Amino acid sequence: EETVVIALYDYQTNDPQELALRRNEEYCLLDSSEIHWWRVQDRNGHEGYVPSSYLVEKS
Results as ranks from 00 to 15, higher is better:
13 T>L: 04
25 E>H: 12
33 S>D: 08
28 C>Y: 13
2 E>Y: 08
30 L>G: 01
33 S>G: 10
38 W>Y: 08
17 Q>P: 03
3 T>V: 09
18 E>R: 14
3 T>F: 10
17 Q>G: 12
14 N>K: 12
58 K>Y: 05
2 E>G: 13
26 E>Y: 03
47 E>M: 06
45 G>P: 00
57 E>W: 05
40 V>C: 08
47 E>F: 04
47 E>A: 07
47 E>P: 03
50 V>Q: 00
52 S>Q: 08
8 L>Q: 08
55 L>F: 09
11 Y>I: 03
50 V>E: 00
50 V>A: 14
52 S>I: 02
8 L>S: 09
59 S>Q: 06
44 N>V: 06
54 Y>T: 03
16 P>F: 04
22 R>S: 12
4 V>H: 08
43 R>F: 06
17 Q>W: 09
1 E>Q: 05
11 Y>N: 00
54 Y>G: 04
48 G>E: 00
49 Y>M: 13
56 V>F: 09
44 N>G: 14
25 E>K: 06
14 N>Q: 15
56 V>P: 02
32 S>R: 13
12 Q>W: 08
33 S>E: 08
53 S>N: 11
34 E>K: 15
25 E>L: 05
4 V>T: 12
30 L>M: 12
3 T>Y: 09
8 L>D: 03
27 Y>M: 00
54 Y>W: 07
51 P>S: 02
16 P>Q: 10
1 E>I: 14
55 L>I: 11
21 L>E: 00
36 H>C: 05
28 C>K: 15
20 A>G: 15
33 S>K: 05
5 V>S: 02
47 E>G: 07
2 E>I: 13
49 Y>N: 13
4 V>R: 06
37 W>L: 13
19 L>M: 15
59 S>V: 06
40 V>Y: 00
50 V>T: 04
43 R>S: 13
47 E>C: 11
58 K>N: 07
42 D>Q: 03
11 Y>F: 07
39 R>M: 09
31 D>C: 06
1 E>G: 06
53 S>E: 09
31 D>N: 11
39 R>V: 07
10 D>E: 05
38 W>N: 03
13 T>W: 02
41 Q>N: 09
41 Q>T: 11
31 D>H: 04
1 E>T: 06
57 E>M: 06
49 Y>D: 07
